[in-house]
Design a protein around this nucleic acid. Structure first.
Lengths: 234, 234
DNA sequence: CTTTCTCCCGGCACTCCGTGCCAGGTACTC
DNA sequence: GAGTACCTGGCACGGAGTGCCGGGAGAAAG
């Protein structure tokens, strides 16, 4: 019973490694911390670290693997939906939810990845896998039209960029503002640009909205900007 | 004079290292080739390899550093242009030009990066720097409107995605088709989506867009749907 | 021609990441 | 109580990347 005088017992060692790693990363820096330092603080063997994390960078993103699986399952579980763009936007919201569940942890990690080039590169590969999942889903939905592959890649990329823009904006504010609203606004911009008229779920009257637009050649973003100003957003 | 019996003399050793590296990568695989193997084949010291290339991955992308500098200079040299989206598309075309200058080399590199996860990750960081350069330029041009940062990120991401989609399509065909036409088509899609209207070059009046919305409580997607119907899209 | 200064190259030693292998320990089963 | 399967730690190894230093070639100065 005296085995765990300071180390945590219940969090099965994986969490202990993450905690020890972040403690050292924050007080000493990522590159100045070796794996031996982490396992020494956690009180475990060096070999066990690489059992739970394939590399030193993985300890910084402990939950992305599960989130990616969730997103893949979420996209796969969609029946023939008429609005794939909305679907991928909802998939991106899953990622935001993961970040929002632990604001302080997410902010700490953001500070780290912003300063360490190696972590930025690793984060890119993580984001790339999300983007690929979205693009693969869209590719399956765009088989009908022409340029399906191109549209899938561009829209997936835009969705990820909008999500990340809003996410980073929220992270820069130390997780104080409303993350969901920020991301909704950013994704709304993408949906507007790529024509995601979301299927009205039920009996809404088209008369709810009356829109008059002059100068049909005006760029779409100009229209969206005007809309948002009119609706009092931004 | 007998010092260089097989090694190239004029290509100052940097090119010799690239040639030796690719020869081994193609016949033995990237991960199965050590830096010692490369320098042994090139007939130089191991220390010299890391003088010319910061890491083993860098030898696979020997010209991207220069291309990134070219793109940055190209964007910086643009006077107050009324069409920033077109400008970043032209910037992306610089990258394509670099690939098209050495089709066989580009195809070989594509095969490598497609199979080796480590090289894919490194390529992502390279692409990310291009994307950041485009986004930074757009951010400077979008200071006027609202959501300038969001628009800059989304458009830069979409441009890069479209460019890469067309580029990879061309690389998959072993560099046979017309790369320029493919990329032009892909970038045209992005320009159309983000309102690069062929070019009203100068004096645009804010009155170009007039929007009237009733029922301010209506959901945004409803407004967007109505807009698109009015504009005759989708 | 000699000397000196400078720059580039090669070699050595070191740290750290990541992996394969094996021994010991614990818990669960029969 | 014996057997078994899994988890853990220790050891050793290969490869990447870095700091340091000695040496040689070439240019500049005498």
């Amino acid at each position: 019973m005296s085995a765990t005088e300071k180390a945590e017992a219940k969090p099965p060692m994986r969490d202990a490694l993450v905690a020890a790693a972040f403690q050292l990363f924050l007080e000493r820096g990522y590159e100045q911390t070796t794996v031996d330092d982490i396992v020494a603080l956690a009180g475990v063997g060096r070999r066990s670290f690489f059992r739970y994390f394939p590399s030193k960078e993985d300890v910084v993103f402990p939950d992305h693997e599960r989130c990616l699986a969730d997103m893949t399952a979420f996209l796969a579980a969609s029946e023939a939906d008429a609005e794939p763009v909305r679907r991928v936007c909802d998939g991106a919201r899953l990622v935001l939810r993961m970040y929002a569940e632990n604001p302080s942890f997410s902010v700490q990690r953001y500070r780290l990845t912003k300063k360490v080039p190696g972590l930025r590169a690793y984060e890119l590969s993580v984001v790339w896998r999300y983007e690929r999942a979205l693009a693969e889903y869209l590719r399956g939905r765009f088989t009908g039209g022409s340029d399906g592959s191109l549209r899938a890649d561009v829209i997936a990329s835009a969705v990820v960029a909008a999500h990340n823009n809003a996410l980073r904006s929220w992270l820069r504010s130390d997780g104080e503002g409303d993350a969901t609203a920020t991301v909704d606004h950013a994704l709304g911009y993408v949906q507007a640009a790529f024509g995601a008229a979301p299927a009205p779920p039920a009996d809404e009257h088209p008369e709810d909205v009356v829109v008059v637009v002059s100068r049909r050649g005006a760029p779409l973003w100009r229209v969206v900007q005007e809309i948002e100003t009119t609706l009092g957003r931004s």
